[in-house]
């Protein structure tokens, strides 16, 4: 145990995701040694981020104003909507530069164990966005794990009666990888989702 404030700092850091007691101690001592200016900047960002950042009223992505940059961009294709679990998934899809439509951030995935059902996710908002027929295709890009798949199944059941095109991201082999290193589940999925190459 360290004296008062130093231990407080280690405890606080240790509550962050992915930071264990050892890492917390290392970060704490890094901060103690660091330039006061650097530390002040970090502290400022931490306070400001909670005050300034809001969630886009349209898609639920992190934003600095009422709408996020993507929703406010008129060049975006309004007919396509990509549904993701978290804001960080938006960033991941954006990095591909393949998708020019807009997003909808659910804020998680269905998981009864954690007490998360459709009411805890932004599903109602999604249905409202789809009401005016501008969107013709919904791409379900939830995580390819149990909870993500369950969420995708739930949304598919909900969206199919609306008569729009509902698609799910393909799962399969990583690009640049070796077939021999793929695990059986991934390889099995890749077989299920195989496609004809003559068109």
């Amino acid at each position: 145990m360290y004296e008062g404030i130093v231990q407080d700092l280690i405890d606080e850091l240790g509550r962050l995701p992915g930071v264990g007691p050892k890492s917390a101690q290392r970060i704490a001592f890094y901060i103690l040694d660091a330039d006061p200016g650097d530390v002040r900047r970090l502290a400022e960002v931490l306070t400001v981020v909670k005050e300034k950042v809001r969630f886009c009223i349209t898609c639920g992505n992190v934003a600095e104003s009422e709408q996020c940059r993507i929703c406010a961009d008129p060049r975006r294709d309004l007919s396509m909507l990509c549904v993701v679990e978290e804001s960080k998934d938006v960033v991941a899809v954006e990095r591909t530069r393949e998708f020019r439509g807009r997003y909808h951030v659910l804020g998680g995935a269905i998981s009864p164990i954690e007490g998360i059902g459709p009411d805890e996710l932004r599903v109602k908002e999604l249905m409202q966005r789809l009401a005016d027929d501008t969107v013709t295709e919904v791409i379900l890009a939830t995580d390819p794990n149990l909870e993500g798949e369950a969420t995708a199944t739930y949304l598919t059941r909900l969206l199919r009666p609306l008569g729009l095109r509902v698609t799910r991201l393909a799962s399969g082999l990583p690009v640049g990888g070796d077939l021999e290193y793929a695990d059986e589940v991934t390889l099995g999925r890749a077989f299920e989702g195989r496609r004809s190459i003559d068109d």
Binding site: I110, S111, P112, I113, G115, G117, P118, D119, L146, E147, A150, T153, Y154, R157
Partner: peptide
């Protein structure tokens, strides 16, 4: 199974109380 059992428990309670519609709706998925 664990997810579904948790859901069944909450849905069962909700049904006896007020409304458990949301829970029942996701039950189909599980």
């Amino acid at each position: 199974l664990r997810q579904r059992n948790t859901l069944l428990k909450t849905a069962g309670f909700a049904r006896r109380g007020t409304s458990g519609d949301a829970a029942v709706a996701t039950l189909d998925v599980w």
